[in-house]
Design a protein around this nucleic acid. Structure first.
Length: 222
DNA sequence: GCGACAG
DNA sequence: ATCTTGTCGC
């Protein structure tokens, strides 16, 4: 029932990845920063895309947009964006205004074809996007120190595709990589700055929270 | 062929 | 993603 075959999706990735910009092309002053996440319903195929807009200085929530729909693509490692982007793009259209920078809860360049969801989302909406995943998809890293702020390069085939970043002392790292229009160094510094109290950036935590509420609310009103 | 494998 | 509370260890 998939609209696209696996081969077609891979061909699209190889085409679009040429549009990815891995250098800083973002405002000098970030005013509004966004977080995205997608929630899954455990007993149906409903998913909720969630985008939160935060004041970059205070990290207070300024706006939230969500969209609930049925999944349209299976989970295939490497083709994640084809599964989670549809609800996110719908939520994106519902935002009252656009953020200066977005943090996605998955990989960007730290992907087997250097085109994770953060890249796909970025080139689609033409905005700076950071990929920040909870677990590793590909690449290896070594010797990550225990201190908050410690960084170890994620390497695949000799390429530096991302960073393992320890956001809290003694806690498992997150995996940061360029999505679009931002350098790895800037992306890594931004993510650390967003992890004020927990392992994950506040953007991701808040998007997860509102996405979960949206899913519950949708099921209640059916 | 075998293992690994974002959410 | 989801199943899932208390518990073991620093």
């Amino acid at each position: 029932m998939d609209i696209l075959t696996e081969e077609e999706a891979i061909a699209i990735q190889k085409e679009l990845r040429q549009q990815v910009i891995t250098t800083d092309e973002l405002p000098a002053q970030i005013q509004i920063i966004a977080g995205t996440d997608v929630e899954y319903d455990k007993d149906s195929d409903l998913i909720a895309g969630s985008i939160v807009l935060l004041d970059a200085g205070t990290l207070q929530v300024i706006a939230v947009a969500t969209h609930v729909m049925e999944v349209t693509f299976p989970y295939i490692p490497g083709l994640f964006s084809f599964r989670e982007m549809p609800p996110l793009l719908k939520a994106w259209e519902k935002l009252p205004f656009q953020p200066d920078l977005i943090v996605c809860d998955s990989q960007g360049q730290a992907h087997q074809r250097r085109f994770g969801m953060a890249c796909h989302f970025g080139v689609t909406i033409h905005k700076p996007v950071i990929g920040c995943g909870k677990t590793r998809l590909c690449g290896e890293y070594h010797d990550l120190e225990e201190e908050r702020g410690s960084i170890a390069p994620l390497i695949e085939n000799g390429e530096h595709i991302g960073n393992a970043l320890r956001t809290q002392k003694g806690i498992n790292p997150v995996f940061v990589s360029t999505g679009h229009k931002i350098s790895l160094a800037t992306a890594t510094a931004q993510v650390l700055q967003l992890c004020t109290q927990y392992r994950l950036p506040e953007t991701t935590r808040l998007a997860d929270h509102y996405g979960r509420l949206a899913l519950l609310d949708y099921k209640k009103n059916v």
